[in-house]
Amino acid sequence: MQIHRFKEHFAGYMFILPSLIGFTAFMLYPIIYSIFLSLMDWNMYQGFGGSTFVGLDNYLEVFKNEYFMGGLINNIKLLVFAVPILLMLALTLAHLLNSQVFGKGALRTVYFLPYITTITATAIVFAALFHEELGPVNGFLRSIGIENAPRWLGSVEWSLPTISIFWVWRNLGYCILIFLAGLQAISPSYYEAAEIDGASGIQKFFRITMPLVSPITFFLAVTMAIFSFSMFAEVKVMTEGGPGTSSYTIVYHIYKEAFERYDMGYASAASIIFFIIILAITTIQWLGQKKWVNY
């Protein structure tokens, strides 16, 4: 009997072994190694012999670093403004695309296209659209009488909002697709019953659609919050953190410290703190979901 159970367990472990090896090699080991590096003044060219143990010094440095703190504030702004706007817009558009709209197949493709297009190419096109003098966006604003149109990526006030607009536009297609899957899973009988009871379109949306897609909304809220915090390519391609440090993000700061200044100890400490911040935000979201997510 015991031999049989052992065989059964052994077979089970064998099944999960490939993914366990992958997880250990590519996730767990790098995390543990990063924790180790974060406690060292690490010389990546001399290895352990050329490095010194500094305890929590790197962590203290992170909190004193103006670029990290600036990046953190910008990341929080993105989380607070860009993520809700993205989710609201995606749900609204998904709802429209789920109803009888002309050419909805083509529209779905159009919305999804930015998500699968190279970020460098899309960012350059976006920068051209928002060009201060020659861009069609400011051209339109001027045509409707707005003389002092924003300078978008070229101004301290507008650089982060412009990147946020780009980020929302780029991720919209993905969120719409996920919302659509959720919307299509809602049984039409709920809407039919509501109609018989005389519910209006808005009532149906808020009383039926919203609660029933709340697990999807929660999933997207968590993943998009993480994505917004991990923003790097958009910043690198569009502004390189500028003007000044107005569009710096934490990941961009970590990248610069690790791969331009080769300060792996500091960059690892910043990464660990970044991980803890994301973990805290996700935990808050998990705790909060009990109040509004209906499974």
Binding site: I124, A127, A128, F130, H131, E132, E133, R151, W152, L153, G154, S155, M238, T239, E240, G242, P243
Partner: peptide, 10 residues
């Protein structure tokens, strides 16, 4: 051209 123009238009 302005600095912002040079940077944003790459």
């Amino acid at each position: 051209p302005t600095y912002a123009d040079i940077v944003t238009s790459k």
